[in-house]
Simulated scan of single mutants.
Amino acid sequence: MFQAQTYSGSKQEDYELVLKQLQALSEGETDPIAIMANASALLNQFLTDVNWVGFYLWKEDELVLGPFQGLPACIRIPYGKGVCGTALKERTTQRVADVNQFPGHIACDSASRSEIVVPLIIDDAPYGVLDIDSPIPHRFDETDEQYIEKFARIVEEFLSVK
């Protein structure tokens, strides 16, 4: 059973609590939209200084907008384009301190200044990405990257349950 918690520990302790909350929210659920909707809401509620949190899903050779929190967003992103497409193509997290310095950045929200994107890979096949934007340059550090990657791995585990 999910129970909301308050955050008041160190950054790492707060992230550990969020990981536990994700587990509790997703336990027993098999619907991918429900899992991703709650995951994006949880991160949006937890993270400060963010303006968009959500998922893009791999469909027919492009990324298509999935569950998210924030302003309306780009609906389709070509493979290998922008931060999201690059993360999926390279299968590596992209932590971008200043999106204006990222070649080919796709500006869905002109207020976004930094971004972190974690690819979702299930059964060695692309599934999509977890994308988080911030209006603050250099918003995401190594701790954020480490824990957002852990968060994405938990999401993958729940999405891979058949």
Rank of each mutant, 00 (worst) to 15 (best):
1 M>D: 13
1 M>Q: 11
2 F>V: 09
2 F>H: 12
5 Q>K: 15
5 Q>M: 10
5 Q>P: 01
6 T>P: 00
6 T>M: 08
8 S>R: 13
9 G>K: 15
10 S>C: 12
11 K>W: 11
12 Q>N: 11
12 Q>S: 14
13 E>I: 04
13 E>C: 05
14 D>S: 14
15 Y>C: 04
15 Y>K: 03
16 E>G: 04
17 L>Q: 15
17 L>P: 01
18 V>M: 10
19 L>S: 09
19 L>G: 11
21 Q>T: 04
24 A>V: 02
24 A>W: 01
27 E>L: 15
28 G>T: 08
28 G>F: 02
32 P>C: 09
32 P>F: 09
33 I>R: 13
33 I>Y: 12
34 A>F: 10
40 S>M: 03
43 L>C: 06
44 N>G: 12
45 Q>P: 00
46 F>A: 02
46 F>C: 01
48 T>N: 11
52 W>G: 05
57 L>T: 12
61 D>H: 05
63 L>V: 07
67 P>W: 08
67 P>H: 05
68 F>V: 00
69 Q>H: 07
71 L>I: 03
72 P>Y: 07
74 C>Y: 01
79 Y>V: 09
82 G>R: 11
85 G>N: 09
88 L>S: 08
89 K>W: 00
92 T>S: 08
92 T>Q: 15
92 T>R: 15
95 R>E: 04
97 A>H: 14
99 V>E: 08
101 Q>M: 14
101 Q>E: 15
103 P>I: 11
105 H>E: 09
106 I>D: 07
111 A>K: 15
113 R>A: 06
114 S>P: 03
114 S>K: 06
114 S>I: 05
114 S>L: 04
117 V>G: 03
118 V>R: 01
119 P>L: 09
119 P>G: 08
119 P>Q: 07
120 L>S: 00
123 D>M: 09
123 D>K: 15
125 A>V: 06
129 V>L: 08
130 L>C: 03
130 L>W: 05
130 L>V: 03
130 L>P: 02
131 D>G: 05
133 D>P: 02
133 D>A: 02
134 S>P: 07
136 I>R: 15
138 H>W: 10
138 H>L: 11
139 R>C: 08
141 D>K: 03
141 D>M: 10
142 E>V: 13
145 E>A: 12
149 E>C: 13
151 F>I: 00
152 A>L: 05
152 A>V: 05
153 R>D: 04
153 R>W: 01
155 V>P: 00
156 E>F: 00
157 E>G: 13
158 F>T: 04
159 L>Y: 07
159 L>I: 02
160 S>D: 13
161 V>C: 12
162 K>S: 10
162 K>N: 12
